[in-house]
Structures are given as structure tokens and as C-alpha cells.
Computed example of a mutant assay.
Amino acid sequence: MSTSPNDATAALLAARTSGLRVITSDGRGIPVAHEPRDAADREPWAEYNARTGTVIRRHSSASCTTVQTTARWMQWSVSRSVSARLTRAGVHCAYEGRADGTRATTTFVDGSSLTWTGAGIRADVQGDDFTIHHSISEHRILRVQCTDDDGDITEQQTFATGNYADDSAALVACVTAYADRHGRTPRAEEPLPPIVLEGDPVSATLLKARSQEKGAVRIVTNDDRMLPVAYEPRTSDDPTPWAEYDPADGTVVGRRRSLECATLDVERGTVTEGWTVARSIYARLEEAGIEFAFGNDSGGTYIRVALADGSELTWNGVTVHGNDVSVLHTIGEHRSFVLDFTGRDGREVNHQFATGSYAADSSALVAWVVAYADHYGRAPRPLH
């Protein structure tokens, strides 16, 4: 007697309950979710496109089998599937919880935050009920929790229709709507590991001269242009560790060997204006429609950006010479940026950008200023 479709489905579900995973039997071994469209559905097993969270094929129970494995099938995990869509929507999340993560979080421009997590059809292999790394095929619920800048829960939603396509779409829509209201934050840049060049005595001599003179000597291209260059080796044996920048967009336009660089004696206080970090950032803020003003205080120089709601931003930089706070040093002498936000309600936020790359730090600084301006409003050009 042949096995009926219902009997085959029951056998697969029983095997799944015992810890096995249901996959396609066509040699691809793709995990499938039991999502029958009605009681008589002859193809109750759904195969998903993980990136879009949509069903691309349906399978009968006869075309599925089981496998016993501890593999995570990360490309079909709930975390990978949802994160791909949130990233496309400009929402960047970080994993939290265990080393591999049981939830994902993101903080918004206004200080509020959001956490999302999920639960599978059974506790995962480490015994946790909540996880975001189980397979789409083992999805049971997704949950979102929102908190304000004081950490108080303001909203919580659970999506548990029994259909991953519907639940994940609802989760992405919820998170995206929250980001629209509270302000997307740019992706965080990770600091680069410190790199020491091996077998490059010329670069060592250039760096020693720059360090000893503390601003009186600048490293420039060894040609008629004498353009400032930044020491940004990519590896310990990088043959061209000196980066030449386009100051208008903060991108590297060329790389130089140490023998293509030289020291330039500069009277303290004078600058190569076109390649200052101020001019480089100015160009991109102007393009984004953001007005700014130059300021001084006892600690050095800074740039102020007033926002439409009465809050403000200030930013400045630190040079490779240590405690020199400035916005008028050259790109080649950049070490880090600091951005401070002061809300009209007194809320203060500090951001630091110190990856070791001017391209990464300056783009992150601009992205954060634009994010604040998008959320709190651009102030008109001040009248003089």
C-alpha cells in the first residue's frame, strides 16, 4: 500500500519534532518550511528566497527528506534574511546576546532604540527559546521591542501568523517605519588594526621627522605639486603606504611609495588650505545643503552646525601630533574626528571616528551630520 500525502507529511513533521530537519530531496538539500495553504494542499512545503523572504517554490512531501545535522544553514537563517532587507532600507543592526547573537539591535538618531528577535519551532541547540539564527524553515514568531532614550519600553509587537513571508515582511515594515520616524543612523566603521611597515626605512624616517617637528614638517608628494599625503598602509609590506586624497570627496586618488614622498618645512600656523580637513568636510556638507559656522574656544577650533529645531552639532579633529585639536590641519595629518550633539532638551551625544583611515572617518562624520540634519531639520543660512 502506498503512503498517502498526509501520511508522508505526518512522518516528516514527526521527524522534525525529534530534531531532524526537513530539506528538498533533489540533491540541493535546501531547508523547507511547513506552510500548507489549506488542509488539502499537496505541496505544503515552502522553499524560500532568503534575501527577499518570499516563497519561490513549493514541494510535496514526497519530494522532501530529512537530515540530522547541527549546521546552521546561515544563508537561510532568519537573521541573514531580515538583516539583508533592513540593510537595503538603511537600517543597520548589531547582534547581541550570546557570542552568535540571540537578538539584533539598532539605535536611532533621537536616542531611541529597537530590538528584534524571534523564536523557532523548538529551542535551539544551546537551549534558548529566543534566537535569530534558526532557519527560515523553523520559524515560529518574530518580535520587535522599541525603547526611548531613557530605556523605557514604548512599543512591542509580535508577528506569529505561521507564515514566514508575512511575519518577516511585517517585521521589516515595522522597523523601517520606526526608523523613518526616529532617524536612521549610519553604519558603524570598525577601527583598522595598527599596521607597522617592515623593511621601509624611508617611511620610518619621514614619520620620525613629522613626529619630532609636530606640525612644522609636512609629508608631501615629491613632485612640483607638493600635495599632502596620509600614512595609511594597507598591509605590513604595502609598497605604497602613502595615500593621496581628493579633498572634495575624501577619497584616495593615488598611492605613493616612500621614495615618492618628501618632507616640507612649513611655518607653524600656515596650511595648505585646499587639503585641510575643514575644506574637505565643508564641500560635502554644502553639497548636502547643510550650513555651518567656524568657531574658536580655549581648546582649539571647531565647526558648528545649527539645526532647525534648536539643537546643534559641533565637530573638530585631532591630529597625528597628539593633543592638537583643529579643523585646519591637512588630510595627511588626520588622526580622528569628534562630533557632539546637543539637543534642545539638553540631551548630549558624543561620537568619535578613529578608524585609521581619513576616507572612512570623514565619510562617517558627514553621514552622521546629514542623519541629524535629516531628522531635526536643516537650519537656513544665518543672516549677517
Rank of each mutant, 00 (worst) to 15 (best):
E213G: 13
V277Q: 05
R284T: 00
I195A: 10
E273I: 08
E232L: 00
D265C: 14
P241D: 02
A230V: 03
G289Q: 07
W275S: 06
I281A: 10
T251R: 13
D237G: 11
T276G: 10
G250N: 04
A293E: 14
Y282G: 12
E287N: 06
R279L: 12
E244M: 13
R257W: 02
D223I: 04
M226K: 15
Y245I: 04
A293M: 09
R257Y: 01
G199Y: 03
P201Y: 06
G274M: 07
G254D: 07
G215P: 13
S203R: 02
S211C: 11
S203F: 02
A209H: 03
T235E: 12
S236L: 07
L207H: 00
L285V: 01
D223K: 05
V220D: 03
S236G: 01
G254T: 04
A243N: 10
E213Q: 15
T276Q: 05
G269L: 06
Y282K: 11
V196N: 15
A283Q: 04
R225L: 13
A288R: 04
V196D: 06
P193N: 09
D246C: 03
N296K: 15
P241N: 10
Y231L: 07
T270H: 14
P228W: 01
G274C: 05
R257H: 12
R279D: 10
P233H: 07
R218W: 11
P239V: 02
I281Y: 07
E286M: 09
D246E: 09
A278G: 12
V277F: 02
K208V: 04
E198F: 05
P201H: 00
S258L: 00
I195S: 11
K214I: 07
R218M: 15
T240Q: 15
Q212A: 15
E273H: 09
L227K: 08
R279S: 13
D200N: 12
A248M: 07
D200H: 09
D200C: 04
L227T: 11
C261R: 00
A283Y: 04
T272F: 12
E273D: 10
V229P: 01
I219L: 07
E291Q: 15
S236Y: 02
Y245K: 09
A209L: 05
A216I: 05
D238Y: 03
G254Q: 03
E198Y: 04
T263Q: 03
V277Y: 11
S236Q: 05
P193V: 03
T240M: 03
S203T: 12
T235W: 04
K208D: 11
S258Y: 05
P241I: 03
E198A: 12
R225F: 11
T270C: 02
L227S: 14
I195M: 00
A278F: 15
V220I: 01
D200I: 03
D246R: 02
G289T: 06
V196L: 12
Y282I: 11
V266K: 08
R255Q: 01
A216Y: 07
V253G: 09
E232T: 00
G295V: 14
D237K: 13
T235C: 02
E291C: 14
D246Q: 03
Y245V: 05
N222H: 12
W275H: 15
V196C: 00
E260S: 12
D265W: 14
R225Y: 12
D246G: 05
D249H: 03
L207P: 01
P241E: 02
G215T: 07
F292E: 06
I290D: 06
N222C: 08
I281Q: 04
G215Q: 11
T276S: 13
K208R: 10
Y245C: 02
T221Q: 02
E213W: 12
G269P: 10
F294V: 11
V202K: 05
